[in-house]
Nucleic acid binder design. Structure first.
Lengths: 191, 191
DNA sequence: CCTCTTAATGCACAGATTGTGCGTTTGGAT
DNA sequence: ATCCAAACGCACAATCTGTGCATTAAGAGG
């Protein structure tokens, strides 16, 4: 159930982690994602723990922010809506809604600062895509390859959020999904 | 094309900037891109300037790193190789070679930490793509829309470098270019 | 060539942060 | 009930951060 790799997931350790994560989130929200307004002592104070705890557990403020970010950005679950297109929209649209906001972008940047965390996150995203494909397969639908879905939908959207600050509306997630899925049988795609 | 917004580009100011940039680059190279090994006083000392100069000009170590990164990653120029496909390869392959290395990834991450710098960089990339399309137009070749090129080639490659640490070979840049240009059914409707 | 103006830099320094040694507490196991 | 190792709090030296003030240098105009 718990994805905690810590040796003692149920005790004080978990409480401290939760308090620290919550402290980071609230401080970031208060300062509109401006991480110059954050410091280890500040977070520690807000969380009611000692600074040394943060240094030992996370080593670094950027790494703490990355950990919080990746934790915050993984709530979406794959659900069976009855069609491949529906599943993809139900899964990815909420992501984009959250990431494309100014604060969501900041959170995304925080995560990207840590290469290892970012890679784990990518694996998790890919796992979601594969689960969606599996569901489609059980239904008898033919789904594009995972790498195709990533290249055609996920990558352009995330790239444009990161590099060009595009809004959720401008990103046309549903149109991208439709174009990808319609390439085999359908004719022109209407917006 | 340097974005010289400084009022006095030819004098001491320029020398200081060059020295500081060079100091950052050499320190990053010596420590394999580990930015925990860097600090403002360290960079200042290496560059032979005072710490206060760095704080005033760049405000912050992350912002300095972002500035150095974006400056370091824009040397490629569009050249006319005689074909759209050749131009795109000549322009983008060297980029990928540099970005996909471990140190290149770090530099990319440093740039991404600064939203404004990253956006300017995106504009510059897009400008290169448009220049390539212009050359193709002069030749009478039909080129995909800029957004299509970005979505089909640039975004997936950069995304996979950032999130999955893929190597230049695994990214198959030439294959992506070829697949994009080989699609004749699509019409260049967007700008 | 000389003076003037102002942006950019150096210097000094108070305040804040970083990171570690050491003793104490906590929670699971025997 | 007792033990034990991991996690934590405390204290503190070293370092870093960021700003007021004096100084320097580049370019303009006489």
């Amino acid at each position: 159930m718990m994805t905690t790799a810590t040796p003692r997931p149920g005790g004080r350790s978990a409480r401290v982690q939760q308090a620290v994560h919550q402290a980071v989130r609230s401080l970031l929200a208060e300062n509109d994602g401006d991480r110059t307004a954050l410091s280890v002592p500040l977070v520690a104070d807000r969380a009611g723990v000692n600074s040394s705890t943060i240094y030992r557990r996370w080593g670094d403020l950027p790494r703490l922010l990355a950990a919080v970010a990746s934790n915050q950005m993984l709530p979406e679950q794959v659900e069976d809506t009855g069609s491949l297109r529906g599943d993809m929209e139900a899964w990815f649209v909420p992501y984009v809604e959250e990431f494309s906001s100014p604060l969501g972008r900041q959170v995304l940047r925080d995560m990207l600062a840590d290469g290892a965390v970012t890679r784990d996150y990518f694996q998790s995203m890919q796992g979601h895509v594969e689960e969606i494909r599996r569901l489609a397969g059980l239904r008898g639908e033919r789904a594009p390859a995972t790498s195709e879905i990533v290249d055609a939908v996920v990558a352009p959207v995330i790239y444009r959020i990161l590099f060009n600050h595009e809004s959720a509306a401008a990103l046309e997630v549903q149109g991208r999904i439709e174009r990808l899925l319609g390439e085999r049988s359908k004719g022109p795609a209407e917006t």
